[in-house]
Each structure stands twice: as C-alpha cells, then as structure tokens.
C-alpha cells in the first residue's frame, strides 16, 4: 500500500551566503496510512519547517515529496490549494480561526472552498462540531470561546473535509492540562477511526499518545521509534 507521506532527501535552506540556514537537511520519511506520528526535537530543529512542507504550505529546496501517491514537487499553486483542501487538515498552535466569524462558519469553510452545497455543508459542519463536543457553541465567535474550545473548533474544521492526513503543529502548546487532555483524546479517537495524524510536540507525555515518535536534531532525523502501546 502507498504510504500517505513519502519524503525523500527533503532539504530546506533559508537565506543564502553568510545567513544561510539549513533548516532541513536530507529528510527521508515514510508514514503509512492510519499511523499516528509525533515529531519531537529541540526548538529550531526544523519541526515546523518539515510540517509546512508536508502540508504543502511551503516548497522544499531539494528532494521529493509524494502525498497519497501524488507527487507534490511539480504542482502549481492552484493544484496545491486543491491538495490542501482535499487531503490535509491543519491544526495550529495558535488555533488560527478566522476572526469575527462564527464557529460554524469557520468549520464550514473548507467545504465552501471545495464547492459542497450549503445544506450538506451545514449538516457536516454541525456534525463535526458535535463530535468535538461544541454543538452548543456553534454560533459563538472565536473571541467568545476559551483556548481549549477554539482548538476543538480547529480540530472540527480540520476533520470536516475528511482529509487523508491531519497535521498538528504543537496543538496543545497554548492549552492547560485539561484542555490538552480533551484535544489529545480527540486525536486518539480520530486515530482509532483510522486517520493518519502527524503531530509536533515538545512534551514527552503528549508524544506518548502517538504510535511512533520521530526526533529531529538540526534538520536531520536522529531517532525514529515505535511506542509499545
């Protein structure tokens, strides 16, 4: 079976000359369908850079990347936006909900860009919000929700379009332990439903929820081990 993520020799260089930074330096990584992977590493080791490339938000300097068997390297911007819309769900550390827009509208948005009809869109968005336990908050604006609630809305938005891959960059970084628990439970459920999840984290106990832990040091993979769950 084709892996969801297939990275070969991915290198990312920022700047040039004296200010050159090799944020990623020859990453080879393959992630199978249904896997739950935590990416760890010190600050500045290149975790977010890797995540942006995997999420098709940024292009690598060198190397090859195939997502769900599709080569991403030579897609144009328009094709990339379709890939992001259909294949990937993002969860960010800073939630990144659209301000002054209700939770429901936020969750609906990926379906709007996909061209799903209004009625169906609404039903799916409400179902997604219900699955993260926020059915009663769907008409709230982001600034009327707690951090944990906002992140759950973000999770609902990431999964509403049923992507092959959920990408989370320190999803619990801004949350207290209780909200962290809520979000991790959600991720666990999604994993149990068979979704592929890649999650960046600093914390060992968060990483412990994943089935596989990849550790980066200075843009290279230094460790790649399976948790004996």
């Amino acid at each position: 079976m084709t892996p969801v993520i297939d990275l070969q020799g991915i290198t990312k260089v920022y700047g040039s000359g004296d200010t050159e930074v090799r944020a990623l330096d020859g990453i080879d990584l393959s992630i199978a369908r249904g896997d739950y992977v935590a990416i760890m590493g010190a600050s500045g080791s290149g975790k977010s850079t890797l995540m942006n490339i995997v999420g098709a938000l940024d292009a690598s300097t060198e190397g090859h990347y195939a997502l769900d068997g599709i080569s991403i390297d030579d897609l144009d911007e328009s094709a990339l936006s379709i890939v992001r819309n259909r294949k990937i769900g993002f969860i960010f550390q800073s939630f990144n909900l659209i301000p002054r827009t209700s939770a429901l509208s936020n969750v609906e948005l990926p379906l709007v860009y996909r061209g799903v009809r209004r009625k169906e869109r609404r039903e799916r968005a409400i179902a997604a919000l219900a699955s993260v336990g926020l059915a009663d908050r769907m008409h709230h604006m982001p600034n009327e929700l707690s951090g944990g609630q906002q992140q759950r809305v973000a999770v609902a938005r990431a999964l509403v379009a049923e992507p092959s891959l959920l990408l989370a960059d320190e999803p619990t970084g801004n949350l207290d332990s209780r909200s962290t628990g809520d979000v991790l439970d959600l991720m666990g459920e999604l994993h149990d439903q068979g979704r592929t999840i890649v999650m960046i984290t600093h914390e060992d106990d968060v990483a412990a929820h994943a089935g596989r832990v990849v550790t980066l040091v200075d843009g290279r993979i230094s460790e790649d081990q399976r948790n004996s769950a």
Binding site: G55, E77, S81, R84, N96, I98, P110, Y113, A161
Partner: peptide, 16 residues
C-alpha cells in the same frame, strides 16, 4: 494577511 493565510491553508484558491 493572517486570515488570508488561514484561508489558503484550508484550500482557498488564488481566484477565491
């Protein structure tokens, strides 16, 4: 700008 980034991340095309 950030909102534009979010919209693009969840699949908004340039034309949208």
């Amino acid at each position: 700008t950030r909102e534009i980034g979010i919209r693009k991340a969840i699949g908004a095309r340039k034309s949208a």
